Simulated assay, not measured.
Amino acid sequence: MTSPAAREGIPPHEFRQTLGRFASGVTVITATDGEQRRGMTASAFVSVSLTPPLILVSVDHRAHMHALLSAETVTQFGVSILSSSQRHLSDHFAGRLGPEEEVPWLTHEGLPLIGGSVAQLVCRKQQAIPAGDHTLYLGLVEYARYTDDDPLLYFRGQYHELG
């Protein structure tokens, strides 16, 4: 028989500390409601399928981006994979706001993306999957562009670079 604690899983602090040992890239998820462009730093990003080309991002229910992506009128979102020189943008979109004029916005068919990033994806929202205190947004990649620059990495609560 399983104990009640085991059924609920490990405590949130322990979970965060453990998963902090997984190095990840840093992305900025972007979308617009037609009037305002929004961005959110996310390391919970994963490739799901090559055929069709699907990705998944995880968004906290408390995030402004969650309300935007939940709107039926928002059908697309962007993913910009940050370069090693874009730490300030990760901080900016994580709520430690810097000057908005320092954000190198660019658009692809009206969707905001981050210029200078290692890669940019434009995704059609396919499915929203409730998952605890987050929603998983599955996106079909409709456009992609990339460079050979080095990515920004996140490991044990700190930024890192390759090499």
Rank of each mutant, 00 (worst) to 15 (best):
4 P>H: 08
4 P>D: 07
5 A>I: 14
6 A>I: 14
6 A>E: 15
6 A>Q: 14
9 G>A: 14
10 I>S: 13
10 I>G: 11
11 P>T: 00
11 P>W: 00
12 P>Y: 02
14 E>D: 15
15 F>D: 01
15 F>S: 03
16 R>K: 07
16 R>V: 07
17 Q>Y: 09
17 Q>T: 13
18 T>N: 07
18 T>K: 08
19 L>Q: 07
20 G>L: 03
21 R>V: 10
21 R>E: 13
22 F>H: 08
22 F>L: 10
23 A>D: 12
24 S>D: 06
25 G>T: 04
25 G>Q: 02
26 V>S: 01
26 V>L: 01
27 T>Q: 05
27 T>F: 05
31 A>Y: 02
32 T>E: 00
33 D>N: 06
34 G>R: 04
34 G>N: 04
35 E>D: 11
36 Q>N: 11
38 R>W: 01
39 G>Q: 02
39 G>D: 01
42 A>H: 06
42 A>L: 04
44 A>V: 06
46 V>R: 06
47 S>C: 14
50 L>E: 03
50 L>K: 01
52 P>I: 09
52 P>T: 09
53 P>C: 05
56 L>H: 01
56 L>W: 01
58 S>N: 12
59 V>G: 10
59 V>W: 11
60 D>A: 12
60 D>S: 09
60 D>I: 07
61 H>E: 07
64 H>L: 11
64 H>Y: 11
66 H>P: 03
68 L>S: 13
71 A>I: 10
71 A>Y: 10
72 E>S: 12
73 T>D: 04
74 V>D: 00
75 T>F: 05
77 F>G: 00
79 V>L: 09
80 S>H: 13
81 I>M: 12
81 I>A: 09
82 L>Y: 05
83 S>N: 08
83 S>F: 07
86 Q>D: 02
86 Q>C: 03
90 S>E: 12
91 D>P: 02
93 F>E: 05
95 G>Y: 03
96 R>I: 08
96 R>F: 10
96 R>D: 07
97 L>R: 10
97 L>C: 02
98 G>A: 03
100 E>G: 09
100 E>R: 12
103 V>L: 09
106 L>T: 09
108 H>I: 14
109 E>W: 11
110 G>L: 00
110 G>R: 00
111 L>M: 09
112 P>H: 06
112 P>Q: 05
113 L>Y: 10
113 L>S: 10
115 G>S: 05
116 G>Y: 05
116 G>P: 04
116 G>F: 05
118 V>I: 15
120 Q>G: 01
122 V>W: 07
122 V>Q: 09
122 V>E: 08
125 K>Y: 10
125 K>N: 12
125 K>H: 12
129 I>T: 05
130 P>I: 07
130 P>D: 05
131 A>C: 15
134 H>S: 00
134 H>R: 00
134 H>T: 00
136 L>K: 04
137 Y>R: 06
137 Y>Q: 04
141 V>W: 04
142 E>C: 10
143 Y>C: 03
146 Y>K: 13
147 T>R: 03
149 D>R: 15
149 D>I: 14
150 D>P: 08
150 D>C: 10
151 P>I: 03
152 L>N: 07
153 L>V: 12
154 Y>H: 10
157 G>W: 00
159 Y>W: 06
161 E>N: 08
162 L>T: 13
162 L>G: 08
